[in-house]
Design a protein around this nucleic acid. Structure first.
Length: 873
RNA sequence: GCGGGCGUGAUGGAAUGGUAGACAUACCAGACUUAAAAUCUGGAGGCCCUUGGCCGUGCGGGUUCGAGUCCCGCCGCCCGCACCA
């Protein structure tokens, strides 16, 4: 039967309109059905959507459509993470207002996304740069301030002297600003901080409850929080060598057991004691300055030599008044961890050993292997870091390190020194408070006012929002808010005197730390409608890139807790299920080399293949381009593919199908035209099968089907069961393989049934209906077209997921492989409910078994019902 | 250095400890066609003495009736963190 080819360019917009008109995807907060909240990490409006974004959203869309079909009240919203530096950079380069640039991009990207036929509740859309949104964020800030979850302190920051702004650590490349290229300076600035460390222990402990998160992400967060248990020890300074007014040096250690292996103290260049000593010692001052300037890049750290400078100060060993140790300033000690000072135990730490060897300091082994000989055990080039027993440690000898830890802690806790214990046990975290001040225009203004008389005065809630001024100029570097006098200069809300607004704005990670809560009631006057938020949250399935494994996900977990303390939410964990998807990658094409090299977009390239080698030729110039590795799609390398290109040539369904087939969703997938064409052929194949047969078929009673028709029904119901399970587990690639299998299995029988009995026709109609429903979450437009063709006047998108018939899924007989000594030799067919003995008999009677046993009696027969028979000869 | 993960045909990848290579891509052959595309049918891990058999999931051991899967030791690749005391 001749049929028209399926034309996605016509069909897709038609069905998108039908869904929108029916408001099928708008979630109702009062719907009594069980809820399901599926969310993909919202995009930054950089300009254009590329196909990598859409793979992410397609996964979420399949989950949303499947859950909707299963009868859940589904929330699947979309928004824009819209504040950030690129808008300001564009403003400087192109003289456009950052807001105009951002909203233009959003408009473009929204239209691009809509081409993909995503089942999104667009009625809840917002951008974080909407005044409406950041107004509520300022309310949250004031509430946090009220609960002491925000504070101000001086801290060291990376300062770009040319762009005149603070840079995040990630924006410092080889010691220079990533935009200006100027060497970055360390500056002390007063910054706002969120007290994320209040929750260190809880954030760590609760990771255990997140059993639907990837193990990898949980481990990364655990390491980031970095809990350690140790002892903080106060070492008395030797009075003869101490600078005036200094009496002690406090040190944090996780290995107090090795205290008798100590041979020096090392302090950071910024340590107060170092500063004090440097004041009277120009050489030391010079060394400290050098340490401060040293690079922090990975390469530099790896090659950096362990260097030190003896301050001349000595400390007294806490267990032996006659034993003093030198204090060195060392370049490998960090001021911002622990107390900025350590005691060096060369035999138990490689760095300390390198340092000791370089400066001729003693190396005293204090831990040796359990079966070692204390008289001869030595440490020279390699520190001994494994478990063992204590030696050379006086009262600790023979103990395990754990026991020695306790012993030292117990003793020093009881030792008085200046009327205080000499040491205390301390749990430390690597996690530090979250500095959120940015010297930027395009961000959420921090709603406080600085008054000379009253100090920091919060903007009264009635005066919110603190709106960003529109009349700004980017002609000069630095923060335009700083020099915007009419915006900046205000009266103090408290005393009425002349005062100044805070001109820093918030880190954009703040914006994305609570947007998922705002989606539950995007128009609420308060930041959330707690009833709605507590109903919808946690997000049941969150989907996004692994690059956010730490920052965004940790900040969001903090925010949820902080919002609970301020009454906006009543839960701790925002994301119940987390899935980190792989990227879409593409080869790169490049002509020329070095700095004169030029990248070419895939659309500018023609690929030629001959004799197994592939060549890439630039279409316009005929020049040959080098084919580069598969890489994440990026603007700079021009290896991006946009949704329009795809929807124009193949349609959204083809792209959706291709992106989810083959590769498991957590792995990268390579975009290739071949692959897209393959997926498109399958779209057309389904359309041929359905549209070729459907007009001759009708729904009816298929219960009496037998032969091919029964086989067809069985195949459909088995696929229905399997695909449902696969979607539940996000096994999109397996689900797709099963749809392929089903089509392969039933296509011939479908065609035959058009000339068959009413029962055959009913069976075929049933099988096709199931087929359409199980691929509908992935290819929703094609599904609607097929659904109409099958005679339904409803939409698949509002049709309930069918229940499979258990009788059709279970076979009456089972084919079981038979192994002899673990090697497969053949198979037997037995009744489904056959007992072990009869299976055994059937197996022993089989020709191939008799042949292989050659008359010998089997020693043992293992029968695993429904699985396998293994005969041990 | 520490932590996590992975290693299966030409390729992407399947496989609750139970028939390794499902499904797809590329490939080969045939049908249809003047021809091509599209479509349909079939083939395909390697080797051999080819109605059959042997080998085969990075390498070497082990547990088991049975191991891609579990355990131990290597090798290689990927990712994350990293002078964290």
């Amino acid at each position: 039967m001749a049929t028209e080819r399926y034309n996605p360019r016509e069909a897709e917009p038609k069905w998108q309109k039908a869904w929108a008109d029916a408001k099928l995807f708008e979630a109702d907060n009062d719907d009594p059905r069980p809820k399901y909240y599926v969310l993909e990490m919202f995009p930054y409006p950089s300009g254009r959507i590329h196909i990598g974004h859409t793979r992410n959203y397609t996964m979420g869309d399949v989950v949303a459509r499947h859950r909707r079909a299963l009868g859940y009240n589904v929330l699947h919203p979309m928004g824009w993470d819209a504040f950030g530096m690129p808008a300001e950079n564009a403003a400087m380069q192109n003289k456009v207002h950052p807001g105009a640039w951002t909203y233009d991009n959003i408009a473009t990207m929204r239209e691009q996304l809509k081409l993909m036929g995503l089942s999104i509740d667009w009625s809840r859309e917002f951008a974080t740069c909407d005044v409406d949104y950041y107004h509520r964020q300022q309310m949250l800030f004031l509430d946090f301030l009220d609960k002491d979850l925000v504070y101000r302190k001086q801290s060291k920051v990376n300062w770009d002297p040319v762009d005149m702004t603070v840079l995040a650590n990630e924006q410092v490349i080889d010691g220079c600003g990533w935009r200006s290229g100027a060497p970055v300076e360390q500056r002390e600035l007063t910054q706002w901080f969120f007290k994320i460390t209040d929750f260190s222990q809880d954030l760590l402990d609760s990771l255990e409850t997140l059993d639907e998160w990837p193990e990898k992400v949980r481990v990364m967060q655990k390491n980031w929080i970095g809990r350690s248990e140790g002892l903080q020890i106060r070492w008395q300074l030797d009075a003869a060598t101490a600078p005036e007014g200094e009496t002690e040096l406090e040190v944090y250690t996780t290995r107090p057991d090795t205290i008798f292996g100590a041979s020096f103290m090392a302090i950071a260049a910024d340590h107060p004691l170092a500063k004090k000593a440097a004041a009277t010692n120009p050489e030391l001052a010079a060394f400290c300055e050098e340490c401060r300037r040293a690079g922090t890049s990975v390469a530099e750290l790896e090659t950096a030599e362990k260097r030190g400078f003896d301050t001349g100060i000595r400390v007294v060993h806490p267990f032996d008044e006659s034993w003093t140790l030198p204090v060195h300033v060392a370049n490998f000690v960090l001021m911002d961890y622990g107390t900025g000072a350590i005691f060096g135990c060369p035999s138990g730490d490689q760095r300390d050993l390198d340092f000791a060897n370089k400066y001729g300091l003693p190396v005293i082994p204090v831990v040796m292997p359990k079966d070692g000989d204390a008289a001869t055990f030595q440490v020279t080039e390699e520190a001994y870091v494994d478990d063992g027993v204590m030696i050379n440690s006086r009262f600790l000898d023979q103990m395990t390190p754990e026991k020695a830890f306790e012993e030292v802690a117990d003793r020093l806790e009881k030792t008085d020194f200046d009327g205080r214990p000499q040491a205390e046990r301390k749990v430390r975290f690597r996690l530090r408070d979250w500095g959120i001040s940015r010297q930027r225009y395009w961000g959420c203004p921090i709603p406080v006012i600085h008054c000379e008389a009253c100090g920091v005065v919060p903007v009264p809630k009635a005066d919110l929002p603190v709106k960003l001024p529109d009349d700004i100029d980017f002609e000069k570097p630095g923060n335009p808010l700083d020099r915007h006098a009419t915006w900046r200069d205000v009266a103090c809300p408290s005393c009425g005197a002349a005062a100044k607004r805070e001109t820093d704005t918030m880190d954009t990670f703040v914006d994305s730390s609570w947007y998922f809560a705002r989606f539950t009631a995007p128009k609420a006057d308060e930041p959330t409608d707690p009833a709605a938020a507590n109903d919808w949250l946690p997000v049941d399935q969150y989907i996004g890139g692994i690059e956010h494994a730490i920052l965004h996900l940790l900040y969001s977990r903090f925010f949820t807790r902080a919002m609970r303390e301020t009454g906006h939410l009543d839960l701790a964990e925002p994301f119940k299920g987390l899935f980190t998807q792989g990227m879409v990658v593409h080869e790169t094409y490049r002509t020329g080399s070095g700095t004169s090299g030029k990248w070419h977009a895939p659309s500018e390239i023609r690929l030629e293949e001959s004799g197994g080698t592939r060549r890439a030729v630039v279409i316009d110039t005929g020049e040959e381009a080098q084919i580069g590795h598969l890489e994440k799609m990026s603007k700079s390398k021009k290896n991006t593919i946009g949704p329009e290109e795809i929807t124009q040539s193949y349609g959204a369904d083809t792209a959706r199908w291709f992106m989810l087939s083959d590769s498991p969703p957590d792995r990268d997938v390579e975009w290739s035209d071949r692959g897209a064409e393959g997926a498109h052929r399958f779209v057309q194949r389904i359309w041929r099968v359905v549209s070729g047969a459907a007009p001759s078929l009708a729904a009816g009673d298929a219960g009496a089907a037998e032969g091919d028709a029964l086989a067809m029904r069985k195949a459909a119901h088995k696929a229905l069961k399997a695909v449902g399970e696969d979607f539940q587990k996000l096994g999109f690639n397996r689900a797709i393989a099963r749809v392929h299998e089903l089509v392969n299995e039933i296509a011939p029988a479908i065609e035959k049934s058009t000339n068959g009995s009413d029962t055959d026709k009913a069976a075929a109609h049933e099988a096709l209906s199931i087929l359409v429903q199980i691929f509908a979450p992935v290819m929703p437009h094609l599904a609607e077209e097929c659904w109409t063709c099958l005679g339904y006047d409803s939409l698949v998108a509002e049709t309930h997921w069918p229940a499979f018939d258990p009788a059709l899924v279970e076979e009456n007989s089972v084919v079981m492989p038979v192994q002899i000594n673990g090697k497969r030799r053949g198979e037997i067919t037995v009744a489904k409910d056959a007992d072990k003995e009869s299976i055994e008999r059937t197996a022993l009677d089989a020709d191939f078994v008799i042949h292989h046993l050659a008359g010998t009696a089997p020693k043992k027969i293992i029968v695993v019902p429904h699985r396998i028979v293994n005969i041990v000869a």
